[in-house]
């Protein structure tokens, strides 16, 4: 193995980004396809991307001439914007397609859409879909790279990578930490991708949720399972809060409400100062957004000193730049 560790470099150029190990995958469909070295490789590349967004001139023309299509079957503001900015900062031509303006609403199937878009010769398609496995299905029908920007309750790999990058910036490591993921585990692709990534990185993972929001077999994905925030948060290094999936309420059996009331959920599972006090003093608090303030998190915590939530958004752009670059620049020298 070559030296993996990189630091935030002040002088970023295409040269030292290209010096990384080639990324051995065509698509990024999930964390499950990655091993520890793939993950470290992507995080190192992401690290190198961070300063670009902080420069006055925020572009690097490594993807000049490439076409990126953002195909979002599910509404998303931040993820779509993040991918769009990431592509544009690398010089790609970015086209956004959302479900409302596409012919999917007219009954065109996912496969038809894939075939049609493929004929337009894109280099990468970024897909979000409400059905688990839909992005993988689409990837089988196109000739370009595909990035999963979230498929149902399955995976959201770039979210897990940006979370890992944020953690690494604050803790200087990932391996060996104790990290709690709290809330609506059952409906969360973020939880699954994070559990897979953190598991691969030798993290002690905890999930904390009421039993109704713990999916069957979760004990095989997390190191420990808790139903009490106070117990689960004891001595953790990182708290990851999840959005209570109000919009997925109708997905669940018989439209049963996923919690009897917001006030009860907040009392027992909302992150407030009292519960957070059980964690380590230098704990960081994360949230993939968008937040339900006063539902899963106290606004004072969300905006407080332990929160790294806005930094997650910044890291999101870096991670997506790194992923795009890794998939589209396979060792070829793009600029002199």
């Amino acid at each position: 193995m070559s030296e993996q560790k990189t630091h935030l470099s002040s002088a970023v150029s295409a040269q030292n980004i290209g010096a990384n190990i080639p990324f051995p995958h065509t698509h990024l469909l999930g964390i499950s396809q990655l091993d520890q070295y793939d993950i470290e490789n992507l995080l190192n590349r992401s690290d190198a991307m961070v300063p670009i967004s902080r420069q006055p001139k925020k572009t690097l023309p490594t993807l000049a001439g490439k076409t990126q299509i953002n195909l979002f079957f599910e509404n998303s503001t931040r993820t779509q914007a993040s991918f769009e900015i990431a592509g544009k900062r690398l010089g790609a031509t970015v086209v956004n397609m959302s479900v409302k303006t596409s012919s999917v609403a007219k009954g065109e199937t996912l496969i038809d859409t894939a075939t049609t878009l493929n004929a337009m010769q894109p280099d990468v398609i970024v897909v979000r879909h409400s059905s688990a496995g839909a992005v993988e299905l689409l990837s089988q029908k196109v000739g370009c790279s595909v990035i999963n920007a979230g498929d149902g309750a399955h995976e959201h790999p770039t979210q897990a990578l940006l979370d890992a990058l944020t953690i690494r910036h604050h803790k200087q490591r990932i391996s060996g930490l104790t990290i709690a993921i709290c809330g609506d585990i059952a409906n969360s692709r973020v939880a699954r991708s994070n559990l897979l990534l953190l598991g691969a990185m030798n993290v002690r993972t905890r999930v904390i949720a009421p039993r109704t929001l713990l999916p069957s077999g979760i004990e095989n994905l997390a190191t420990e399972v808790f139903t009490s925030m106070q117990e689960g948060l004891k001595d953790v290094d990182v708290v990851m809060m999840l959005r209570l999936q109000h919009e997925r309420q109708s997905d669940t059996s018989n439209k049963l409400p996923i919690t009897p009331s917001i006030r009860e959920y907040y009392r027992f599972y909302g992150l407030d100062a009292e519960k957070l006090a059980h964690a380590k003093p230098d704990v960081i608090v994360m949230h993939p957004g968008p937040m339900n303030r006063g539902v899963e998190i106290d606004p004072a915590i969300a905006d407080g000193p332990r929160s790294v939530i806005t930094e997650q958004v910044e890291m999101g752009v870096a991670v997506r730049m790194a992923v795009l670059d890794s998939l589209l620049n396979k060792g070829e020298k793009t600029i002199a």
Partner: peptide, 24 residues
């Protein structure tokens, strides 16, 4: 019908990793 709900495969670890709703 109620317990099946929107389940699409056997409930358990495999359904959970695939992000699919399980049928108990």
């Amino acid at each position: 019908d109620g317990l099946t709900g929107v389940g699409v495969m056997n409930s358990g670890f495999f359904a959970t990793t695939l992000g699919l709703k399980g049928i108990p």
